[in-house]
Simulated scan of single mutants.
Amino acid sequence: MKIKYLKIMHNANPGEVREVTDFEANILIKTGVAEAFVEPKKTTPKPKKEVKTEE
């Protein structure tokens, strides 16, 4: 499980994202040291419509 650290720990600084076991993640989340990290969904850019001009 990926977590984002909220406090300074011996192996991470605040803001770092690390992969840990579910057991470790649950303990760190419950103690307020980290929060679950959800990766932002990647959006696909929509193709731009071509504008036709009359000449």
Rank of each mutant, 00 (worst) to 15 (best):
T43K: 05
F23P: 00
T21R: 14
V38P: 01
I29Q: 07
I27T: 14
G15F: 11
T43A: 02
T43I: 04
P47Q: 10
A25V: 10
M1I: 03
V51T: 12
P14W: 01
E35L: 09
V33K: 11
E39T: 04
V38E: 14
T43D: 05
N26F: 00
E19W: 13
Y5L: 14
L6Q: 06
T31N: 15
R18S: 11
H10T: 09
P47N: 09
K41D: 11
V17T: 14
K30C: 00
I27N: 11
E55M: 07
K4S: 03
K41Q: 10
M1F: 04
T44Q: 09
L6S: 10
V38L: 13
K2T: 03
D22C: 05
P47G: 06
K4H: 03
G15R: 07
P14F: 05
I8S: 13
K4G: 02
K42E: 12
I3L: 10
A36C: 00
E19V: 09
T43P: 00
P14T: 02
I27Q: 09
E39H: 10
K7E: 15
E19T: 12
K48R: 14
K52T: 09
A36D: 06
M9F: 04
K30F: 00
A34Y: 01
E24N: 13
Y5T: 03
I3Q: 02
T43L: 04
K4N: 01
V33G: 03
V20D: 04
E19I: 11
N26C: 01
P47M: 05
G32D: 06
F23C: 06
T43C: 00
P14H: 04
T53W: 12
I3K: 06
E19M: 08
A34I: 05
K49Y: 01
E50I: 11
V33D: 03
L28H: 03
K7I: 15
F37V: 04
E54K: 05
K30R: 06
M1H: 02
A36M: 08
F37T: 01
K52A: 07
T31E: 15
I29H: 06
K30E: 03
K52D: 10
K41E: 13
M9E: 15
